[in-house]
């Protein structure tokens, strides 16, 4: 069990710089999404942009994963492997990308192309969850906010997967579930200097997920309905939450 890592303001500043660059890449990739383009092409584009920005693709540093991004089509929840598959009109396309920049990881994702009502819920849930990330609150405050927003709209949150702390390693403690689990009193407090990758993972249908095939990565919804993923890297500071993976400064 690793300890929580506390980052100094200087470290957070470096992560913010990486986060801004990554956010630009994320937005650019999501603009490139159009019918006919293959997920592999999007991945190649993202990798080129990350290297051009002076970083390294975080996901390539995950043992066994050889791509810069995860592209999640329709029923894919997370870890969709980019490949030959072409995007069709009306497909929901989730883009999950991470960059290792000056020694620190940042991680973000966005979903485009699905039904607007469905996407709006995810955006709202992430926004509300990120607002909870201030010192004195608990991890469960974030989780509860995501669950309430998503379930309030009639969708379900994925229980098998979580958000995570982020820093020198892509995945750090603590885990941030999208739903409230355990006793509120036992949930860790947020302290300033923590940096969290808050991920909202939600399904149009039931919460159950399953491995799609034997590639060992791709996770899809059990009932083949679409799934959304929105993620930001958020720093907990004395002045409240700071979303690092955002373009505007």
């Amino acid at each position: 069990m690793d300890k929580l890592t506390i980052k100094t303001p200087e470290e957070i500043e470096i992560m913010a710089e990486g986060g801004r660059k990554l956010a630009e890449i994320r937005d650019e990739i999501s603009r490139q999404v159009q019918p006919g383009i293959s997920t592999g092409q999007l991945d190649t584009m993202a990798e080129k942009m990350i290297i051009k920005a002076g970083g390294k693709p975080s996901f390539k540093m995950v043992p066994g994963y050889a791509w810069a991004t995860c592209i999640n089509l329709n029923e894919t929840v997370v870890h969709g492997i980019p490949g030959e598959e072409k995007i069709k009109k009306g497909d929901k396309v989730g883009i999950d990308v991470g960059m290792f920049y000056k020694g620190y990881h940042t991680d973000t994702s966005v979903t485009v192309g699905g039904p607007e009502k469905f996407l709006e819920v995810g955006r709202l849930a992430l926004k509300k969850a990120a607002e909870q990330a201030s010192p004195g609150k608990r991890i469960m405050d974030i989780s509860k906010m995501m669950q309430e927003t998503v379930e309030g709209a009639g969708y379900s949150v994925v229980r098998a997967l979580t958000g995570h702390g982020i820093g020198r390693k892509l995945h750090e403690e603590p885990a941030i579930p999208c739903f409230a689990v355990g006793k509120y009193e036992h949930s860790p407090f947020l302290v300033s200097g923590m940096v969290l990758a808050i991920e909202v993972m939600y399904n149009e249908g039931a919460a159950e997920v399953a491995y799609k095939n034997d590639d060992g990565w791709t996770i899809v919804t059990a009932d083949d309905k679409i799934s959304g993923l929105f993620e930001h890297t958020v720093a907990v500071t004395g002045d409240g939450p700071v979303v690092l993976t955002t373009v505007k400064k």
Partner: peptide, 28 residues
């Protein structure tokens, strides 16, 4: 969930039972 983190400090006072009063010096 692991909820511990590390900080640095300076010992102010020794108390019985190997207890101490420690002032935190880390900025975070």
């Amino acid at each position: 969930a692991p909820t511990v983190f590390e900080v640095e400090g300076v010992v102010l006072e020794n108390l019985p039972n190997t207890s101490f009063r420690v002032k935190v010096t880390s900025s975070l």
